[in-house]
Design a protein around this nucleic acid. Structure first.
Length: 603
RNA sequence: GCGGUGGUAGCUCAGCUGGAUAGAGCAACGGUUUUCUAAACCGUCGGUCCCGGGUUCGAGUCCCGGCCACCGCGCCA
């Protein structure tokens, strides 16, 4: 069937310098809306263009909105689509081939010169950032992630929150937000009574020096074993806790020691993962802030006493009308609902958060749903601004048997041991594949590849589902893995080394002509979709959308790399291929950086 | 019992909030190297999208009812 195509007006020259939108789809949305008015549609405001990235077979973008509009008004959708196309701003024809297809889709295919225009406009990390930063400009987002318990080892269960949380922080920052990274440590609770009990009796100072968390875990275990239920020893341990809570100087000093040595140990892990928190406001920080929560929730009538405890019900909710949100225990003590409420208030008021993101596993979904329901009503009742509240959940990490990941002896796997093993395995692989590199470099490569593989295994998959931990899969050079992506980066660097130019060097790109070969075009069209991946990952708080894009980009690059030699003699061809390499490198390095991975120049 | 999440190729998973002929990787089979990193690329094979209804121009995607797995549901976090 015939599809009308817009042609560039005779003599039209694509301007060398013109405004280029970061999100090209935004231009199309505006253009179609404007055309709806010019085309004389009965109800132009009702036409929502619904611009989507298209299957490459059909074009780069498509407008789907005509179908719904036409059907609702008993119009022929193809006819409406053709009316719209005829009314499109002719300047658009300089950039896109436009056609109507199927039942009434409008397809837009970027012309090679327009592809080059975008690639020239977004030629640096700064320009990409400037393009992306409109989404959350001027906003403050608090991200609560990792959040381990002090005096305990970080284990594999803490991995996902840390990795996903950091990627979300970087995405939000890239999109223009000021991000407050807050490690909501589990640093308060009944376990400290037993730990102090053990500490005062069996401390080995040398062991505390050498591996503080190891020693604290040993002391807690001894304290726990020495204080069985109903024993006088348990009463003593409880007394230690009471003393701590009442500000006994000795116990407070001990508790502070536990916190500081724990944070120092955690930071060793965070350094390997590229994480640095702005704040470590643990549960203890909110001890003196829960009374206000009780008071305000009672005075607004949201909380009530039930079975001696202070609870919040949500009558409009099918389940939480009867399942209580327990915010103060019957004995008067606070619990994590109390401190989480106080935390939300502090973040909203002290940090002036426009958004709060909490990254924990899916088992806490009920808690956060109740928490957020309560916060919204509470803030509304008091006239406090209500931030966007997001609970970012994730599934479990399982072994290949589908059960929770454990060591062979059944213990939890420590994060330190896990990262060590990742680096060892990566070192063995790089030493086999590239034995001529100096050992120091192979070690450095192993650090980036090994840790990156662990991070990316988490980030490449939809966070909602469980994921199966497999060394072989995450360290494979094929498939959607960190080594595959890092390898693509290294290969591009290799070309620039061979060519004796720096990536993105303006001189090397000056003569670049628009992409021509099938592989060049395919790569260029993938490159300009980067903003779409950022938007999708950022809006849904699902980093795997960015990972998937990077994998597809690396795939396009590999196909290009295989089909078209870059360092050819013909200057314009060489220049445009170098430009494509430089932009691929820029987007891969920027994207992997947003996911928290470190990239390499050689591997 | 109520609820959450998942169920897509032999395996591990995508599928951009309802769009065009459902895609990758692994595994299996075949091909490409005087080549900028073959740690790559290309192709073939492979589908009851858990089942049954419904909504509509169009459903893997939304609604209803089932089945299976994991998880949560009053003083742990």
């Amino acid at each position: 069937m015939a599809t009308p195509r817009l042609r560039a007006p005779a003599g039209f020259r694509f301007p060398a310098r013109m405004h280029v939108s970061f999100n090209l789809g935004d231009d199309l949305d505006a253009a179609v809306r404007s055309a709806a008015g010019l085309a004389g549609l009965a109800d132009p405001a009702a036409l929502i263009p619904e611009i989507r990235t298209a299957d490459p077979r059909h074009g780069d973008f498509q407008a789907n909105g005509v179908l719904g509009y036409a059907k609702a008004r008993r119009l022929n959708p193809r006819a409406v689509a053709e009316q719209l196309v005829a009314a499109l701003d002719p300047a658009l024809a300089a950039q896109y081939e436009v056609g109507v297809a199927g039942p009434g889709f409008i397809n837009f295919r970027l012309r090679p010169a327009a592809l080059l225009g975008w690639l020239r406009a977004f030629d640096s990390a700064e320009h990409l950032r400037a393009g992306a930063a409109t989404a959350h400009a001027g906003q403050t987002w608090v991200v609560d992630y990792s959040s381990p318990n002090t005096a305990k080892q970080m284990h594999v269960g803490h991995l996902r929150s840390a990795v996903i949380g950091e990627a979300i922080c970087r995405l939000l920052e890239f999109m223009g937000a000021r991000v407050v990274r807050d490690n909501h440590l589990g640093d308060w609770g009944t376990q400290f009574g037993k730990l102090i009990y053990g500490y005062k009796r069996w401390l080995n100072p040398a062991a505390l020096q050498a591996d503080p968390i190891e020693e604290l875990e040993r002391l807690y275990k001894l304290g726990h074993e020495a204080t069985p239920d109903g024993s006088p020893e348990l009463d003593e341990a409880r007394q230690e806790l009471v003393k701590l809570q009442n500000g006994d100087p000795e116990n407070v000093a001990l508790w502070q020691t536990f916190s500081s040595v724990s944070q120092a140990a955690f930071q060793q892990i965070y350094d390997r993962l590229g994480i640095r928190f702005d704040h470590h406001l643990g549960e203890s920080f909110y001890n003196d802030k829960v009374d206000r929560v009780y008071r305000e929730l009672e005075e607004t009538g949201l909380a009530q006493v039930s079975e001696g405890a202070l609870v919040v019900f949500h009558p409009e909710h099918p389940r939480f009308k009867s399942q209580p949100f327990l915010i103060r225990k019957a004995d008067g003590a606070s619990n994590y609902a109390s401190t989480d409420l106080a935390t939300a208030l502090y973040r909203a008021q002290h940090f002036k958060a426009d958004g709060i993101v909490v990254v924990t596993d899916f088992r806490q979904a009920d808690h956060f749903e109740q928490l957020f329901l309560t916060v919204r009503k509470w803030f509304a009742a008091k006239g406090y601004p209500v931030p966007e509240l997001h609970h970012v959940t994730f599934g479990a990490v399982t072994g290949e048997d589908g059960k929770a990941l454990k060591t062979r002896s059944g213990d939890v796997i420590r994060l330190k041991a896990l990262l060590d093993e990742a680096e060892e395995r990566a070192f063995a692989i790089v030493s086999e594949k590239n034995p001529d590199l100096p050992e120091a470099e192979r070690r450095a490569i192993a650090r980036a590849v090994g840790v990156g593989a662990v991070q990316y295994a988490d980030l490449s998959q939809n966070r909602s589902s469980n994921y199966v931990f497999s060394w072989d899969k995450m360290l494979a050079l094929d498939g959607n893995t960190a080594p595959y992506l890092l390898y693509a980066v290294a290969r591009i660097h290799s070309i620039f080394r061979r060519g004796g130019v720096a990536p993105g060097d303006p001189g090397s790109e000056a003569e670049a002509t628009p992409p021509e070969t099938a592989a060049e075009l395919s790569l260029a069209r993938k490159l300009v979709k980067f903003p779409d991946a950022i938007r999708l990952a950022g809006e849904t708080l699902r980093p795997h959308y960015l990972g998937l894009y990077l994998f597809e980009l690396a795939g396009e690059y590999s196909a290009f790399n295989n089909a078209d030699k870059v360092l050819v003699d013909d200057p314009p061809v060489r220049a445009r291929r170098l430009l494509l390499c430089a932009r691929t490198l820029l987007l891969l390095e920027t994207g992997l950086g947003l996911l928290g991975l470190r990239t390499l120049k050689r591997m």
